[in-house]
Design a protein around this nucleic acid. Structure first.
Lengths: 182, 182
DNA sequence: GTCAGTGCAAATAATTTGCAGTCTT
DNA sequence: AAGACTGCAAATTATTTGCACTGAC
């Protein structure tokens, strides 16, 4: 059995290419213009499985896309979300994080470093989604997360032990706070 | 069968009293001081089932607790969370929301008005929580939300129809944005 | 050519922090 | 008393917006 190594936090390039072309088609069919910036932001999200923040996307892209501005990244993310190309992930810290993976999966959320990783859903999802009868709530998305401690943060940490940091997104407010707490 | 009416978003006062006294004991036993402000913030959260934001708590309390400051509310909420008296709820908008209900339940999150309501968990929770073997992640909290449209926002809205607003928390950034989108 | 999309800088929102004073224990 | 907790104002962080300009269609 061969192990195929991919860079940490990276999605197989085959899949990425697929998603990107579907994205461009989708844009054109809805009359959204395919600009270098939009393409870059979407591709960045498609490649990155660490659910980066707007700022992280901006930092990753700035060297490649000349003159890109943070405000634009925010605007693009909002439009991608509205058009259903990406999903905004609920977080415990203030920062918005994004996910181009729209398939049903669960998130492993580390309460120490704030990292969010995908994991296959190991629980049957009721279909159709239950209606909360009394309240009249109509559910559309089944959003399951397991909150806990990731491998890196859980390792015994004597002298020299290092705390994991999500690769593409440096720890932000809440994550920093969690680290302080330990 | 008699229907016991409680104010929308309110928890039975019996339970609230219970929780509050447990809270005060807990504080004392850990050497935390029981001040009027802390008591008020915790009680507010215990009474309110709408998962209010710091700002909402502040507004609700300002008339009652003279001279209360927003910074203090934030500080108290952080301390309550660290001590495990309340849980910070993950949200899709930027605003932090809090929940004094620590029992296992799921959240119904309205993507239009941003409201978050509790609902009994109608799904078996694997015990112990699954370990994501490969990744070494150790799960502690099972966090399930159903994201969709709440009763108020889903009602047919011809002329005169009104959009629901979460009672204790006025819509914030993301919620306002959702409303704009409709 | 048209106008959606962009960059920049300034505005707003959400949260945190420094410091001097206050109140619980 | 001691120092944990608070209020106030100022600082930070996260995100949005106004406006003139540019590039995809």
């Amino acid at each position: 059995m061969r192990i195929i190594k991919t860079k940490r936090g990276a999605r197989p390039s085959r899949e990425v290419r697929d998603w990107c072309s579907r994205f461009e088609e989708g844009c054109r069919s809805r009359g959204l213009r395919v600009t270098a910036q939009r393409r870059a932001v979407y591709q960045c999200l498609a490649e990155d499985t660490t659910h980066p923040t707007a700022e992280a996307i901006y930092s990753a892209l700035r060297p490649k896309v000349t003159g890109l501005s943070l405000a634009t990244v925010y605007r693009i993310l909002e439009s991608l979300e509205q058009e259903g190309f990406v999903r905004r992930v609920r977080t415990v810290d203030g920062a918005g994080r994004f996910d181009a993976n729209l398939s049903l999966h669960q998130h492993l959320v580390c309460r120490r470093c704030g990292s969010i990783t995908d994991s296959p859903l190991d629980l049957p999802v009721p279909q159709p989604l239950p209606r909360a009868a009394a309240s009249g709530f109509v559910a559309e998305i089944f959003d399951l997360s397991l909150i806990g401690i990731c491998a890196g943060c859980g390792r015994p940490r004597g002298r020299g032990a290092r705390r994991t940091q999500p690769s593409s997104s440096p720890p932000r407010r809440a994550a920093r706070e969690f680290q302080r707490r330990s």
